[in-house]
Design a protein around this nucleic acid. Sequence first.
DNA 1: AAATAAAAATACATCTGTGTCAGTTTTTAT
DNA 2: ATAAAAACTGACACAGATGTATTTTTATTT
Lengths: 194, 194
Amino acid sequence: MGEKSAQKRRYILETARKVFVEKGFKKVTMKDIVEACEISRGGLYLYFDNTSQIFMEVMKLESEEADDVFSDSITEDATAADILVLFLQEQKKELLRKKDTLTQAVYEYYFENQPPKKDNFLKKQFDSAVKIIEKLIEIGVDNGEFYCEDCAGTARNIMFVLEGLKISAQTITITPETVDREIIYILKSLGVEA
Amino acid sequence: MGEKSAQKRRYILETARKVFVEKGFKKVTMKDIVEACEISRGGLYLYFDNTSQIFMEVMKLESEEADDVFSDSITEDATAADILVLFLQEQKKELLRKKDTLTQAVYEYYFENQPPKKDNFLKKQFDSAVKIIEKLIEIGVDNGEFYCEDCAGTARNIMFVLEGLKISAQTITITPETVDREIIYILKSLGVEA
DNA sequence: AAATAAAAATACATCTGTGTCAGTTTTTAT
DNA sequence: ATAAAAACTGACACAGATGTATTTTTATTT
């Protein structure tokens, strides 16, 4: 498969991503992707075998482009609290505009394809986020910005709260105020008044 | 529809529940339910129109039989901390045996049928659980068992953590130890050493 | 026991999605 | 310019699910 094919593969994946954002995972058919890409049925099968494969590759692309949220803010010479707040605000934005992310599709995919212990996209994201938050809290504690006895535990706890908010945003209806309250709660638990 | 029909309706719902537990929501077809109930295709359509309707009624039954977890333990003359621990242990059990609950099916259903603001089964459950936990914490604070400045906030926070654990158990693989750590973390935040 | 009503089973027509394949067009190389 | 290779297309056969219509069985009434 030559240069050109790689380009088209990429185009298909990017277009398919929009479809998954729109419809989740389960509902999407090869036909949907074909139509979105404005190619033929047979053409699509030249590049991909089925929707699961396409989705997996979409997730892969996604994960390669991730982690930027953090690095953006960390490079500044902001305080630990600033960075944490920035991160939480970013998460808030993300989880409230639920119709613009792969969140739901990813959940659906994992429901269908029972927990792959290795190569679990979500687990990787979760674990790496925990680690970064933990580091951040440690820095804050050293600074005297935060009070915290168990940085790892707190980091994990924060991530579970965010997961809870994320899924709740997809099922229950969640208001910005609800998210704000949780953010304030988290900061308070670190001894930071918002 | 006579006495007998009502009985059969009930039988179908209870059998269908097992199918939903087994397969989630989206995957389940009328055929699956027909086979599980050992009745005929046409027969099922006499009672229900489609899988969504069946699932909605299953959830309704489910919600009518809920809330017992709490009432069971609350009637005892246990301390607030005891009751809270019992509740958290119950939740732990529930979320670890993920293959034995409707959790995943409910999520799938809500993904598909976008957030009904009224009659939202999940929201009702969530809100009522928050209220009960809040009361419990207040009692504990009055007792001097707990230390807590914002009972409502803490109750909400606990529920979001549990939601996070619940969805994580379905997607990431979660160990009992992970849940235990969160439980300990929660108790510690109330000033209770486990 | 025959007539009638209710309940259940079967067969049917339809629809939607899948994956493949024979044939066509486009690209590339000589 | 032409042959070979690569990329693409639309039609096809198949599979599985839906909801309905018809027939068969079972129960009820007189």
